[in-house]
Simulated assay, not measured.
Amino acid sequence: MSSMSSILYLHGFASSPASWKVRELSNALKARGQGYRLICPALSTVPNEAIAQAEAIIESRVGPLTLIGSSLGGYYATWLAEKHLLRAALINPAVAAPASLEKYLGPQTNLHTGAPFEFTEAHLAQLRALEAPKITPGRYFLMVETGDEVLDYRKAVQRYEGCKQAVFEGGDHSFTRFPEMVPQLLEFCGL
């Protein structure tokens, strides 16, 4: 890939650019003099607005762009990768986000900022409309841990069958092996 390669990181539900994985990735890129290649917006809690934020970035980029999506961000990344013909690395992705997030209807709090927000039926409907009906296996690099206490990793392994996959025993939803996977992740992103 060209020297203009960039990464658009899409964080998970109630998360933010302050998540430990974003900080880890940012530090790895800064150590290589490439910190400027990482874009991680604070995504709106409203799915359609989050997608609009991501698409504005995608449409403004010059050069190759790879998506990285964690949890709900993985669900968004899949839809965006198919629509915009991009590659995406998925970390413990929410495969069926509407079903996974139904139990979170009502008042919520951002894990990093403490900002309150309301998760509504309208948001679930927006998520349903963002489900990619099919995927192109060559676009994806799936990373999951079997100990994910939030999402069933087997659903992701099945959904992304035929894709490059790294499945690790143990761990949790935060994807504990992220630091050791950063070199492979950057290689996948063309950096």
Rank of each mutant, 00 (worst) to 15 (best):
P41H: 09
T78M: 12
P47N: 08
A42W: 03
E55C: 10
Y75L: 12
A50L: 13
L65P: 04
S71N: 06
A42P: 03
E55I: 10
E55Q: 15
A54P: 00
L72I: 09
T45Q: 14
I39P: 00
G74D: 06
E49T: 08
L65Q: 04
S44D: 14
T66K: 06
A52N: 14
I39D: 01
I57T: 08
L43R: 09
I51F: 10
P41Q: 07
S70W: 04
S44R: 10
Y75M: 11
A56I: 02
N48D: 13
E59L: 11
A54D: 01
E49A: 15
I51G: 07
A42E: 13
A52V: 11
C40K: 05
L65W: 02
T78H: 12
Y75V: 12
L67K: 04
L65S: 05
Q53G: 14
L72S: 06
P41S: 11
E49C: 06
T45I: 08
T66N: 02
S70A: 10
A77T: 13
L65I: 05
V46A: 09
C40V: 13
R61W: 01
Y76F: 15
E49Y: 04
Q53A: 15
G74Q: 06
T45Y: 14
I57H: 05
L72F: 01
Y76W: 15
I39T: 08
Y76P: 10
V46N: 12
E49V: 08
S60E: 09
P41F: 08
Y76N: 14
I51Y: 07
C40L: 00
I57R: 00
A52Q: 15
P64C: 00
A56D: 08
T78W: 12
G74A: 08
E59T: 05
V62E: 02
L67E: 03
A52T: 13
S70E: 09
Y75A: 09
L43T: 07
T78K: 09
A50R: 12
Y75I: 13
P41G: 10
S60K: 15
A50P: 13
A77H: 12
L43S: 01
P64Q: 09
P64K: 01
A52S: 15
G74P: 03
T45F: 13
A54I: 01
P47G: 09
T45K: 12
